[in-house]
Structure formats: structure tokens, C-alpha cells
Computed example of a mutant assay.
Amino acid sequence: MKIIKLNAIDSTNSFLKDLAQNSTLECFTTVVTNNQQKGRGQMNSTWLSEPFKNLTFSTLITNIQINIDKARYINFAASLAIFDVLKSYSIKELSIKWPNDILSENKKICGVLIENTFVGNKIKNSIIGIGLNVNQTNFNELTNVTSIKCETNKEANLNELLDDLLKNLEVKYSAIKNGNFKKLEIEYLNQLYKYNQKTDFTTSTGKTFTGKITGIANNGNLQITLPNNEIKSFGIKEISFAK
């Protein structure tokens, strides 16, 4: 495993993507920075991180060779790897908010951005970008975020935490290589925020409705069962939790 450490960079995902396009990299090559200035999240959102306080890194998984309709399992593996490490820090009320935010008591502690490359109908490589709030305690006006230090009142060692996360990513990824897809899915659903609970949602058109999260579709969409037992599927831009 090769780790490339940079003092400051716009985006570790973008840097690693460019590096992979122009050179041959070993599996789990990782780029980590002390100061990510233009971090990216889902739906082109930005991820702002205080320098030298948090973990912002991306890791490359090569030669995956699974069908495109199994892409969701990469998400399951990454989310669970982070979840398990944070659990070892005794973070309270951890959950995974679909598709791959990690929450503590309904506050975001970690975000993940996964970018895949394809050959035909197969996933060739995957870049997993992770932004984890570690020792930052001041988030200005944001009230729905937290960090390891906020939750434990203790500072965490960034190097040790990175090592734990990368080791656990390898463990979870081995389930994909070994074809243990169902095991990953069951573990993911068991930790999924609001899974099988009556919940209010809002669609992208502003419509509010009630249903229960009951699964993840083959294309990664969220499956929600309505009171009449009809199952509807929603993409990440199509639905949110009602406020």
C-alpha cells in the first residue's frame, strides 16, 4: 500500500484520478492531505475542512472487475469500513445515511465520494474519497455536523486513524472479491439510518410523503415502501428526508 502525503491540494479525488490516468498505481494507493481546499461531495456539494484537524484522503482500488449493477457493494464496503472504525472510538448512535454519509446522533461526522471507471459493463477501478471530521470542534454556523473530538472530548491521532481506516477498507473490500455480496448488504441495511422506520420524505418537486426505507435497488437507488405496500425507487437527487 502506497501513501502519498501532501500539505495542501484542491481535491484528493481529483489528484488521484489524474495520477491514475497517467501512471500505473498499485491497489490501495492513497492520497492524503492536511489541507483540502476544494473537497467535493455528493451532488457537487463542497466539503470544508479545517487544516491539520481532520482526515481528507482518497484511495484507489484497482482491477475490481464486477458488473456495473453491483456498484452499490463498493458503497456498502466503504461505508461499513468507516462505521466499524468509528464504533471502536465509542461514537454515540452511529448510523449510515444513504448513500454513504456517517452520522452520530443525526449529525454528519463523515462524507464519502466514490468515483468508478468502467470497461464495457465492468467496473475497472474505484476511487473512494473520505472526509472525516476528527479534531475540529468549530463548524461556524453549521449545527448538523460533529467530529470525533466533539463526541469523545478526546483528540485522535490522525496517522493511526488513517491506518485503521485503510486496513478496514481492505477487509471490507475482500468481501466483494470473495463474492460475499449478501453479507455486505445485510450489514449495511442493519446500520442504515431510518431503515424500516416510518419516515417523512420530500421529493425534488416538493411533494412530502410517508414511507419506510426497505432496501437498495440494483442501481443503488433507495427503495421506499409506501403505506399501500407499493415500493418506489429514488435516486440521490430525487428525494431527501423531510425537515
Results as ranks from 00 to 15, higher is better:
residue 77 A to Y: 06
residue 207 K to T: 14
residue 122 K to P: 00
residue 75 N to I: 06
residue 238 E to K: 08
residue 44 N to G: 12
residue 67 N to S: 15
residue 124 K to L: 03
residue 61 I to N: 06
residue 80 L to P: 00
residue 96 I to A: 03
residue 139 F to D: 11
residue 163 D to Q: 07
residue 30 T to A: 06
residue 57 F to I: 02
residue 109 I to M: 03
residue 76 F to Q: 10
residue 119 V to H: 13
residue 118 F to H: 14
residue 14 S to A: 11
residue 160 E to P: 00
residue 77 A to D: 08
residue 227 P to F: 13
residue 103 L to N: 05
residue 97 K to T: 11
residue 171 V to I: 11
residue 23 S to R: 04
residue 20 A to G: 00
residue 167 K to D: 04
residue 205 T to K: 15
residue 88 S to Q: 11
residue 184 L to W: 08
residue 177 K to Q: 12
residue 37 Q to H: 02
residue 8 A to T: 12
residue 138 N to E: 15
residue 17 K to N: 15
residue 182 K to L: 15
residue 100 N to M: 11
residue 148 I to M: 11
residue 156 A to P: 07
residue 165 L to H: 10
residue 207 K to H: 13
residue 198 K to N: 13
residue 131 G to V: 03
residue 163 D to F: 03
residue 224 I to G: 00
residue 133 N to K: 11
residue 69 D to V: 08
residue 201 F to N: 12
residue 83 F to V: 08
residue 221 N to R: 09
residue 87 K to Y: 09
residue 167 K to M: 02
residue 187 E to G: 05
residue 101 D to L: 00
residue 192 L to N: 10
residue 152 T to M: 13
residue 229 N to I: 04
residue 52 F to Y: 13
residue 215 G to R: 10
residue 30 T to M: 10
residue 107 K to F: 12
residue 119 V to Q: 14
residue 117 T to V: 01
residue 147 S to C: 09
residue 163 D to I: 00
residue 140 N to C: 02
residue 110 C to A: 13
residue 61 I to E: 00
residue 174 S to L: 15
residue 106 N to F: 03
residue 3 I to T: 10
residue 109 I to P: 01
residue 165 L to Q: 12
residue 38 K to G: 12
residue 207 K to I: 13
residue 112 V to G: 00
residue 201 F to W: 09
residue 14 S to C: 03
residue 49 S to G: 02
residue 144 N to M: 08
residue 13 N to C: 06
residue 225 T to V: 12
residue 126 S to T: 13
residue 188 Y to N: 06
residue 136 Q to F: 04
residue 203 T to L: 14
residue 237 K to P: 11
residue 190 N to Q: 13
residue 183 K to T: 12
residue 243 K to H: 10
residue 4 I to N: 00
residue 160 E to R: 01
residue 43 M to N: 10
residue 243 K to C: 08
residue 72 R to C: 05
residue 184 L to I: 11
residue 90 S to D: 12
residue 55 L to G: 05
residue 20 A to Q: 02
residue 11 S to E: 02
residue 41 G to F: 03
residue 76 F to S: 08
residue 110 C to K: 01
residue 170 E to Y: 04
residue 97 K to Y: 13
residue 114 I to W: 02
residue 87 K to S: 12
residue 227 P to W: 11
residue 42 Q to D: 05
residue 23 S to D: 05
residue 54 N to G: 07
residue 99 P to H: 07
residue 188 Y to R: 05
residue 14 S to D: 13
residue 236 I to V: 14
residue 8 A to Q: 10
residue 35 N to Y: 15
residue 60 L to H: 01
residue 190 N to Y: 04
residue 176 I to L: 13
residue 57 F to S: 06
residue 224 I to A: 01
residue 141 E to W: 10
residue 42 Q to V: 02
residue 110 C to L: 06
residue 235 G to I: 01
residue 55 L to Q: 02
residue 85 V to K: 01
residue 168 N to P: 02
residue 33 T to F: 09
residue 147 S to G: 05
residue 108 K to T: 04
residue 182 K to A: 14
residue 174 S to K: 15
residue 212 K to L: 02
residue 184 L to S: 10
residue 221 N to L: 00
